[in-house]
Computed example of a mutant assay.
Amino acid sequence: MAERTTTGAKLEVDTSYDNDTTYGDQLSSYSASLTSSVLDYRYENGRRYHKFRDGSYLLPNDDTENERLDMVHEMFLELLHKKLYLAPIKKPQRVIDLGTGTGIWAVDFADQHRDAEVIGCDLSPTQTTMVPPNVKFLVDDITSDWTYESNPFDFIHARFLAVAIKDFGKLLKQCYRSVKPGGWVEFQDWDGYPTSEDGSHNGTAIKRYYDEVYGAFEKAGYEVRPGPKLEQWFKDAGFVNISVKKLAIPYGVWPKDPHLKKVGAWAQAASEANGFEGFALAALTRYKQWTKEEVLALANQARDDGRNRNIHMFFNFYVVYGQRPEK
């Protein structure tokens, strides 16, 4: 039986919120990109994309995207009260972060666990070179067959693989084979489609944005709402002691709760850092034949809606972890 927790209570709107209030001072300190790559890349519609396994990932890997990913990392830290993970791991010796992006999670984890060997794996070599000595980064495709079974991990972590993976079931089975008996696997991921308890996001440009963009990802075969399905995939792979935590990520600073307000501020900041554009360009131009100008127009409309304090939109986010049986 899986342990399940959820936020449960309704998200209360802060009616005293001033629409001109920003969190600019809080966010301004986190604006520098970690690195850029010297390797050959694909350039399209003014953005840079990975060249290794070209086309298998539809989001950019340029400095602007790296800045956004680092903001998303800060949002997740706020959401989980500064915790990098929730699984009950103890003294891990070998750890891998799947789809590591800028590598910021791997670096933070390595700082906290100096005795662990930490590997960050990604399609793009866009990680910082200023890392603890117990971190290394690999350029690899996590959807291909793995070769880690002979040297398994104590802990496997993956965060925000929505729109990047087509077969999560297969990926979880690979994780099961590559984690030690008694070891833990944790996935943190979205139900990508936004919602609102009062229906205030219905009929808006920002809702149309996500409908169109996720429709393009789905047309390309990607899973866009893995969060609520993770529990079953963990069970199917053979994991036990599964825990499911469902959380709300508001868009913007409309919630009354100070913690959720700060989470929402990070979510909005990340999206406004060219996130709307970068998230949509490749998917809509490659799979729905939109022009760049059409994508940018919709992105700008979505950005304007996101600043509207009367739209109380949020996303459901899931943290799911499980253990490979000891025997």
Rank of each mutant, 00 (worst) to 15 (best):
E3R: 14
T6Y: 04
T7N: 13
G8L: 13
G8E: 15
L11T: 13
D14G: 04
S16M: 13
N19S: 15
Y23D: 02
S28W: 08
S28M: 11
S29P: 04
S29A: 11
S29V: 07
S31Q: 15
S31Y: 11
S31E: 14
S36N: 14
V38E: 14
L39T: 15
Y41I: 14
Y43K: 12
H50Y: 05
K51C: 03
F52G: 06
F52K: 05
Y57T: 09
D63M: 09
T64R: 11
E65A: 03
N66I: 03
R68P: 09
D70T: 02
M71A: 13
M71F: 04
L79Q: 03
L80T: 11
K82D: 13
K83I: 01
L84R: 02
K90M: 03
Q93H: 12
V95P: 03
D97H: 10
T100C: 12
T102C: 05
G103I: 12
H113K: 06
R114K: 15
D122W: 00
P125N: 07
M130Q: 14
K136P: 11
K136G: 00
F137A: 00
D141F: 06
D145W: 07
W146K: 03
T147S: 15
D154M: 07
A158C: 10
A158L: 13
R159I: 01
R159P: 04
D167N: 13
F168D: 08
K170L: 11
K173R: 15
R177F: 00
R177L: 03
S178Y: 05
V179C: 12
V179M: 04
P181G: 06
V185R: 09
V185G: 01
E186Q: 14
F187W: 02
Q188F: 10
D189K: 00
W190F: 13
G192P: 00
S196E: 11
S200Q: 00
N202G: 06
N202F: 13
G203V: 10
G203P: 12
I206H: 08
I206L: 08
I206Y: 06
R208A: 12
Y209S: 09
Y209E: 04
Y210Q: 03
E212W: 08
E212H: 11
Y214C: 11
A216T: 10
F217S: 01
F217H: 02
E218P: 04
K219M: 12
K219C: 09
A220N: 10
Y222H: 00
V224K: 03
P228L: 01
K229I: 06
Q232R: 05
W233A: 10
K235S: 14
I242P: 07
I242W: 06
S243M: 04
I249Q: 05
G252W: 10
D257F: 09
D257M: 05
L260D: 08
K262D: 02
A265H: 02
A265T: 02
A269T: 12
A273L: 14
G275C: 01
G278C: 02
A280S: 13
L281N: 08
A282M: 00
L284D: 02
K288I: 11
K288F: 01
K288D: 15
Q289P: 04
Q289T: 14
T291V: 07
A297M: 08
A297Q: 15
A297E: 15
A302R: 06
R303M: 11
D305C: 07
H312L: 02
F314I: 09
F315S: 08
N316S: 09
F317I: 04
F317A: 07
V319H: 03
V319C: 12
Q323W: 02
E326Q: 15
E326V: 09
K327H: 13
